[in-house]
Structures are given as structure tokens and as C-alpha cells.
């Protein structure tokens, strides 16, 4: 696992979560910054997926392989899911949804690091 990339994803997702949460608090629907943020996060998790995939192909093995694969697949799909759900709800609750979605990403990344050991 790549430490700096993980850290960057965690910080970015917290930033998007804060921005979206603030937008929800101010009664604002998801804005371009939120969607742009989710696209950046998507790029980050895809990069993470590629790095993990390459490591697995080179024979490195996490402590629990099945669990790791489950988490990495979820993580790679997650920003896209938040994006779609945010689009479906053009009210302040869309912003809250994106905020909650972004708060899940650090948990996923930390769990991945934990499983990789």
C-alpha cells in the first residue's frame, strides 16, 4: 500500500465531506465543487486500486485476502456511488448524502491499510 496516496485520499475526502456538510447546513444543493471533489476522489481510489492490484499480481499478500478484495472493490466504486446519489437529490439533502458518503472513504482506506498490515 502507498502511504502518501492513502493519506492524500483521506485528507481530500474529509475536505469534500466538510464542504458538502457545510453546503447542506446552509441549505444548498450539491454544487460543482462537490462533484469535482468526488471526481478527484474517484481518480485517487482508482489509483489506489491499481497500486493494490499490481502489488497482488507481484505476489504480495495481505493478511486476509478475501476481505481485502471486498474492501478494495467497495472503495473503488464508492465516490461514483456518492456522485450518483448526490445527483439524484438536488436539495440540501443531496449535499448531506455526499458528505456522509465522503466520511465513509477514510474508514474504508484505514481498514484497507489495517488488513494489508
Amino acid at each position: 500500500m502507498s502511504g502518501p496516496l492513502d493519506l492524500a485520499i483521506i485528507i481530500a475526502s474529509l475536505a469534500v465531506a466538510a464542504w458538502a456538510g457545510f453546503a447542506g447546513f446552509r441549505d444548498r444543493a450539491p454544487d460543482r465543487v462537490q462533484f469535482a471533489g468526488l471526481i478527484v476522489l474517484q481518480a485517487g481510489v482508482v489509483a489506489m486500486g491499481v497500486v493494490s492490484g499490481v502489488a497482488l499480481l507481484r505476489g504480495e499478500r495481505p493478511a486476509e485476502l478475501e476481505t481485502f478484495v471486498g474492501y478494495i472493490v467497495t472503495t473503488v466504486c464508492w465516490p461514483a456511488v456518492a456522485f450518483v446519489l448526490g445527483r439524484m437529490e438536488p436539495t440540501k439533502w443531496g449535499s448531506v448524502t455526499i458528505s456522509v458518503g465522503c466520511l465513509v472513504i477514510p474508514v474504508l482506506v484505514l481498514r484497507l491499510e489495517q488488513i494489508w498490515g
Binding site: 486476509e64 478475501e66 446519489l85 439533502w93 456522509v100
Partner: peptide, 27 residues
């Protein structure tokens, strides 16, 4: 809809979390 969408998302997260965990453990 509205706040319900947020609740829905959280239920989905837990369906996924519990389901993935159960799948791995049972397998």
C-alpha cells in the same frame, strides 16, 4: 427522498458492510 435519502445511504452501507463480512466469513 430528502433526509430519507441520507438514511437510505446509511442502510445501504450497513447492508454492504454486514453482507461482505458474512460472505467472507461463511466462505
Amino acid at each position: 427522498r430528502g433526509p430519507g435519502r441520507v438514511i437510505l445511504v446509511i442502510y445501504c452501507i450497513f447492508a454492504l458492510a454486514a453482507g461482505a463480512r458474512a460472505g467472507v466469513q461463511i466462505a
